[in-house]
Simulated scan of single mutants.
Amino acid sequence: MADDDLGEVIVELVRNGPYVKCSAIHVATGREVSAIGPVNEPKSVERVAIAKLRRALSARL
């Protein structure tokens, strides 16, 4: 996945029963964050993970 202002981001979704875990890794820095949510809302969980990654990267600057 390529995001215009983030650069390249690897997104992984793993189901665990009624939940899904989304990990987002920023390729350039190796920074990783994750979010967990209901399995029927994977795109929402992905949006939360990307938002967390943005916050984590901005805190580094």
Rank of each mutant, 00 (worst) to 15 (best):
S44I: 10
N40K: 13
R15T: 11
V9C: 09
P42R: 05
L6V: 02
G7W: 08
A28R: 15
R55V: 14
V20D: 00
E12I: 10
I10E: 11
N16F: 11
R55C: 06
V27L: 12
V14L: 05
T29N: 04
V20G: 00
R54P: 02
V48C: 08
E12H: 06
N40Q: 13
G37V: 01
L6S: 07
S58P: 00
V11D: 07
G30V: 07
G30I: 08
L61Y: 04
G30E: 03
A2S: 05
A2N: 12
G37K: 02
L53P: 01
R55L: 14
P18C: 05
S44P: 00
D5Y: 08
E12M: 10
L6E: 14
G17Q: 09
E41M: 14
T29W: 02
I25A: 11
S23E: 10
G37Q: 01
M1C: 09
R60V: 01
G17E: 11
G17F: 05
S58Q: 14
V11A: 08
V45M: 07
L6M: 03
V39S: 14
P42A: 06
V27K: 10
C22P: 05
A24E: 01
A28N: 13
G30W: 01
A56V: 02
V14P: 00
K43S: 15
M1Q: 12
I10G: 12
V48N: 09
E46T: 15
V39L: 11
R54I: 14
A35L: 04
V20R: 00
G7F: 04
A56R: 04
L53M: 04
A59Q: 04
I36S: 02
L13T: 07
S34I: 02
R60Y: 02
E12R: 10
A35N: 04
V39W: 07
R54V: 05
S44Q: 14
A56S: 11
S34D: 07
A24Q: 06
I10Q: 10
V48Q: 11
D3C: 03
M1G: 14
A2R: 13
G17D: 12
K52H: 10
R47D: 15
K52E: 12
R15N: 12
A49F: 06
E12Y: 03
V11K: 02
L61V: 09
L13S: 14
P18F: 01
R54T: 10
N40D: 15
V45G: 02
G37D: 03
V9T: 06
R55F: 06
S58E: 15
T29V: 04
V14N: 09
A49W: 01
L57E: 07
G37H: 03
I10S: 12
R60N: 07
P38T: 06
L53D: 00
A35C: 11
S23P: 03
A56H: 03
D5N: 13
G37I: 00
V27G: 01
V11T: 15
L61I: 04
V45A: 03
S34V: 00
Y19S: 08
A59D: 07
K21H: 06
V14T: 11
H26S: 08
A2Y: 15
S58N: 11
H26M: 05
A2V: 14
A35G: 06
V27D: 05
P18S: 12
L57R: 02
V48L: 15
M1Y: 09
P42K: 09
V45T: 13
R55Q: 09
S23Q: 12
A24K: 01
K43T: 09
V9G: 03
E8Y: 13
A49V: 11
P38H: 08
V27R: 14
